[in-house]
């Protein structure tokens, strides 16, 4: 195993991919908790399709993919957020509209320039070879910015996620923080898209959050747990894809599915019984352990 890993990391492109991938997985999982709870999961999906379109255009124009994609996807994030906040237009339909339009534009641009070839496949399902050195630098800087802003605004993001009206009523500028969440998501998606693929990147956002919500009962533990789950799953996925020569994006998603099923199953383990059998009874404390909260039948 160690030898395989050593061999794997002797390839610089793999090291680059893993570094960027881990950072993206981390950012995506943190933002994912908020997005899933706010019922904004579809925004992530919509943004990744917009990213596909911009990526195709950037390649056609021979421009640096990230520098073209990021501003356009940020703009899309702004509009998607506006759409879902405006109750007059049905949010999910509008998101579907935008995502399919960008998909179609992207496919059209690719077929007119390079022709329908492996490029399309790489964009849709990801390729581990996609990262250049410049990309890595930019990705690391942006990922650090995303992480920093998330940690700095953690409490505000919690408040806005849990109860926007209350947050607004007590003077928190919830519109601003919604926008922040959407922008950070947009950046994360563009960074991870070429490796994970436009169709699969949103799984990095949704899976870890849902997985940790199976077991964790506090916002903080959900956030920390999904960060750990996400990075672990990504790493395992990349190693599997290296050993078995499978597509990276799909491998990562499959590992995520496995984690989700595992956590769902763990839910049914009678923790309280196990605890009382193997551990001496304890009156108070133990706040973070899932076994200290028995389900209440109300």
């Amino acid at each position: 195993m160690i030898d395989t890993l050593r061999e794997m990391f002797s390839y610089t492109f793999l090291v680059r991919a893993v570094v960027v991938g881990l950072l993206v997985a981390l950012c995506a999982s943190l933002l994912g908790v908020s997005l899933v709870l706010k019922r904004y999961s579809m925004i992530g999906d919509g943004l990744s399709h917009v990213g596909f379109g911009t990526l195709a255009i950037a390649t056609a124009m021979n421009a640096a993919p990230l520098t073209v994609s990021i501003p356009i996807v940020l703009l899309a994030a702004f509009f998607l957020l506006r759409i879902s906040e405006n109750s007059k237009i049905k949010g999910d339909a509008a998101i579907a509209l935008i995502s399919t339009s960008s998909l179609a534009i992207g496919v059209m641009v690719i077929s007119l320039t390079t022709g329908m070839n492996t490029d399309v496949c790489n964009y849709l399902f990801g390729s581990i070879l996609a990262m250049s050195n410049d990309d890595v630098t930019l990705s690391i800087i942006l990922a650090v910015v995303v992480l920093g802003l998330f940690v700095l605004f953690y409490n505000k993001i919690f408040a806005v996620t849990f109860d926007e009206t209350f947050a607004r009523a007590t003077g928190v500028r919830s519109g601003l923080y919604n926008m922040l969440i959407a922008f950070l998501t947009a950046i994360t998606i563009v960074l991870g898209m070429r490796m994970m693929g436009a169709l699969l990147i949103s799984s990095l956002i949704i899976f870890p959050a849902l997985t940790s919500m199976r077991l964790c009962k506090k916002f903080k533990t959900v956030t920390v747990c999904s960060a750990i789950v996400s990075t672990l799953c990504f790493f395992c996925g990349v190693v599997i894809s290296y050993i078995k020569a499978t597509p990276t994006g799909a491998s990562v998603v499959l590992v995520n599915i496995a984690a989700f099923l595992l956590f769902s199953a763990l839910r049914y383990v009678p923790w309280a019984k196990l605890k009382s059998r193997f551990l001496p009874p304890k009156e108070t404390g133990m706040p973070d352990r899932p076994d200290s909260h028995e389900r209440e039948v109300s």
């Binding site: 408040a159 849990f162 109860d163 947050a167 007590t170 928190v172 916002f219 903080k220």
Partner: peptide, 19 residues
């Protein structure tokens, strides 16, 4: 959305101080 929100009561209560 709040009905199935994974947060401890303490986290919710403390968020009242945010304003």
């Amino acid at each position: 959305a709040q009905k199935d929100f994974p947060a401890s009561a303490y986290e919710v209560i403390l968020s009242g101080r945010l304003g």
